[in-house]
Design a binder for these strands. Sequence first.
DNA 1: CCGCCGACTGTAATGCCGTTACAATCTGGG
DNA 2: CCCAGATTGTAACGGCATTACAGTCGGCGG
Lengths: 203, 203
Amino acid sequence: MAGRLTRERVIDTAVTIVESEGLDGLSMRALCQKLGVSVTSIYWHVGNKDALLDALVERTQAAVVAVEPRGTTPRQRLRSIALSMLTAIEEHRELIGIAHRRGAVAYVFAPARRAVAIEFHAAGLRGAPLADATNALLQFVVGFSLTESIVARTPSGERHPLELWEGEAPIDEVAARRLALEPDLRRAFEVSLDAFIVGLLAL
Amino acid sequence: MAGRLTRERVIDTAVTIVESEGLDGLSMRALCQKLGVSVTSIYWHVGNKDALLDALVERTQAAVVAVEPRGTTPRQRLRSIALSMLTAIEEHRELIGIAHRRGAVAYVFAPARRAVAIEFHAAGLRGAPLADATNALLQFVVGFSLTESIVARTPSGERHPLELWEGEAPIDEVAARRLALEPDLRRAFEVSLDAFIVGLLAL
DNA sequence: CCGCCGACTGTAATGCCGTTACAATCTGGG
DNA sequence: CCCAGATTGTAACGGCATTACAGTCGGCGG
């Protein structure tokens, strides 16, 4: 296309492929084809696929903007941070999936981690409990949303049915009906986030 | 080896490969080689790799034994269920990783899910909050331990460093030192599980 | 202007992977 | 004993990441 091939253009194109067709759609062949270039050129500019994915993780960190906590109480601000993390994950699902597989999620969310630590500090936590609460909240959000992304990737029809009671009488009709559905993960998140933060603040 | 090839033997061997070399080590070629058999025989008995992985998920559910909650209070018993789920996940990390990728985790842990629902019911929850709390706790444990398994798979040396404060003075020395380390996920789990359960019981 | 050297790109191969068309074999029932 | 269906093997296809090797291009010293 536009003159010379650069490392930047390779990575840009890799990002667009990943965002439109997922990680599985990103092959070195597809990449060079989209660039109108031979496969060795890519290897010249980015090394190999591993290095390319590292570069994508770098991009991901840059794309996940620094969090700006909203609210007045630490509890509100922690909730705001967690929700914006969730939003970032949903907006860059595939890219963060890559970071996930490479064990670089903590790296990508380092700014958010810092913001969380500051809020727990403001709430009065110190020392080990401060560190524990910070790690736990990050873990909570990341674990939640990564599981969510897996479920989102699985076609509904192919999921195993959730036969919770298997013939026996359910203990609670309303709950049983709800539990028979696919779990609404976003709802599970909203519901449990507050409870979780409250519990952590009590450390 | 022992006479005829059966679907059972194929799946058994697939399990041992997955457990010893991980999912990446499971190729149809490696499998047939370990069985001393040609590749088409495998296809005859299990269909294709997708069907094989489905069979592995089935095995996984069977391997994850039914939970037997310990303790007297619902809180203790919920904690016990969560911890035994964690143990099961750690013992069958690779197999459950497969279930994870196929969106079948809820299926594998259906018995645990039921046990959790019973305990929340005993704690007085009914209807929607009962369903929400159940889903949230499952989500919590699964999300936690799947992220943990990813980290466990990443070689320590290759992880990005966690520069939390980047030059600025940390707000808390003890916490900063702790946060600079790799998060101890098991500890994060132990620490936050109780807080989480307490919060959920307040639904 | 020539020639050269390093940056860059292409051709074609290697060795994996999942999958399958086809032929050969083996086995139980008539 | 012989046939049909069950089971297995040979050999291929296309796709994947990677790389050895051979070029091509651009700028710079002579």
